[in-house]
Simulated scan of single mutants.
Amino acid sequence: MAEIDKVFAGSIPAFYDTLMVPMIFEAYAAATAALVAATSPRTVLETAAGSGVVTRALAPQLDADTCYVVSDLNRPMLDFAAARQGPDARIGWRQVDALDLPFDDATFDVVCCQFGAMFFPDRVAGYAEARRVLKPGGRFVFCVWDRIEENAFADEVTQAVAAVFPHDPPRFLARTPHGYHDVARIRDDLRRAGFADIKIETREEVSRAASAHDAATAYCQGTPLRNEIETRDASLLQYATDRAAAAIANRHGNGPVAGKIQAHVIVAAG
């Protein structure tokens, strides 16, 4: 993973939350929140919380005396999530590296992480940290995207933007969000981190946007793909976005668009 893949700053958090979150994250946030809340945990740690889509889905399902720590490595995203969530005495907001958790062993009933593990520079270390802070019998709940070919808009945007920069195509979406999809590898990494009971469900959902332009803007300007485009030629950001919109419209039509998305939902324990 390139260092630039971790930069969610400037206008990216707002584009990410207003366009990307409802398009691809909300359905999986609901599933993640349901899995976390199912055992009525008293202590929950969320890592790589992003703009807080899981937080907003999970908080209403937790008891009044639950301790819920919401964390992210990226301060702009964490600040955005906290402002969007509003006051909640149960929630503590922490800027935290998921690979170096500042918590004692056996602190939490559940650790959850929706679509953050792909960004870990050392996933086994990140999983081992999650296991370390879990109480005996605790569960680690997380999601990762399946291969980019199973995610229509992401694949179409990647191909369209590559055509704008044929000699140096931006590969953020394929490299990082969709670069950690092999189920056997995920199981092996979790076992190496000490987890024994591993359940993986591959879930297909539908991604929806008000228009092809909204979908293209979400990917090109609401993710670090924007950083890759601007590094090559900042003057071509809107052009690249327009080319991506045309590619989506060509496949999915004008007006509201819908496309397949697919991810792995994982629960690990033991």
Rank of each mutant, 00 (worst) to 15 (best):
R139M: 08
D168N: 10
P22T: 10
A117H: 03
V96Y: 09
V110P: 06
C143F: 00
P170E: 09
Q159W: 03
A49I: 01
P224D: 06
H181F: 15
A234Y: 11
A33Q: 05
E156Y: 03
A57H: 15
G270R: 13
E149G: 09
R131E: 07
F172E: 00
P121D: 05
S11A: 10
A245D: 07
K6N: 11
A125E: 12
T241A: 08
H264Y: 07
A117D: 04
A244R: 02
R132G: 13
F195R: 03
A174G: 13
F25A: 08
A244G: 07
R226D: 05
E26R: 09
F120L: 13
H252P: 06
I229E: 13
D122I: 05
T39A: 15
F115P: 00
D65S: 15
A2V: 01
F120S: 04
I198P: 02
M23G: 01
R243T: 06
I200S: 08
V70P: 10
I248E: 02
V44C: 05
R192Y: 03
A38N: 14
T43M: 11
A2N: 13
I198E: 02
D109A: 01
A27I: 00
P41S: 11
D122A: 11
Y68M: 15
M23H: 02
N254Y: 10
N227T: 05
D168W: 00
Y68I: 15
E156V: 11
D189M: 01
A31K: 13
P41C: 12
S207A: 14
W145I: 01
T176S: 09
P166H: 03
A33W: 07
A152F: 10
I12R: 03
G253H: 09
L78T: 10
D168T: 06
